[in-house]
Amino acid sequence: MSLAKRIIPCLDCDNGRVVKGVKFVDIRDAGDPVEISKRYCEQGADEITFLDITASTEDRGTTIHTVEAIASEVFIPLTVGGGIRTLQDIRDMLNAGADKVGINTSAVLNPEFVREAAERFGAQCIVVAIDAKCVSGPGEPKRWEIFTHGGRKPTGLDAIAWAQKMTAYGAGEILLTSMDRDGTKNGFDLDLTRAISDAVAVPVIASGGVGNLQHLVDGIKIGKADAVLAASIFHFGEYTIPQAKAFMREQGIEVR
């Protein structure tokens, strides 16, 4: 009897619609976030992650309204990210029904914000989202750096050191996205996932690049992730959550 590995469908939302980009551009419309969340919940998704993908870029907050609507219909955990900048933003999201908030750009701009947020609301609801890109040349030891603003802005921060720092500051979970893989369907960056999972004591959610069910298994078995996040394979009906769970179970992974 142990903890089940989690499957987390991710809803990237723009103006109240679920969208999915390839390498953070080229957006396809995938539907209404409330309907999609309900469907995933009924199918046995373990959590839902809602990301307001335009929030940092266009300097506007996540839509509390959509979060409230999802939380009224979906009785599994909901993480909300995108444009979380102040303690009041976190308070608003928790009151709207979010269980956790994802902090990305604001953590880079002001790491103390993560510490304050964890002290105020508890580490368990503070997810630090890390967008990392491989910056080492061929033949060099692998190295990844943190990028913000939807993957457009380099920060010079080393991904492993950053994940450790954020954990020390009180992050209760790391949502790790490979910018090299996101939207490619080539699978997670397993070296990156493994490096971060080994480096921190909190749960790590692998994200970016899932194209088939074997990728989910690899993220857990090879990448040592505690949870796997995917968007387009579920949104566009290539696979269902029950198919994903059945496949993972066959491969010896404990799922709910």
Partner: peptide, 19 residues
């Protein structure tokens, strides 16, 4: 911190997920 389950996997803290 640093506890392992029966399969030898490191147990993360917080305990987060479905048990």
């Amino acid at each position: 911190a640093g506890q392992h389950d029966a399969k030898g996997e490191l147990l993360k803290v917080p305990h987060m997920g479905w048990s």
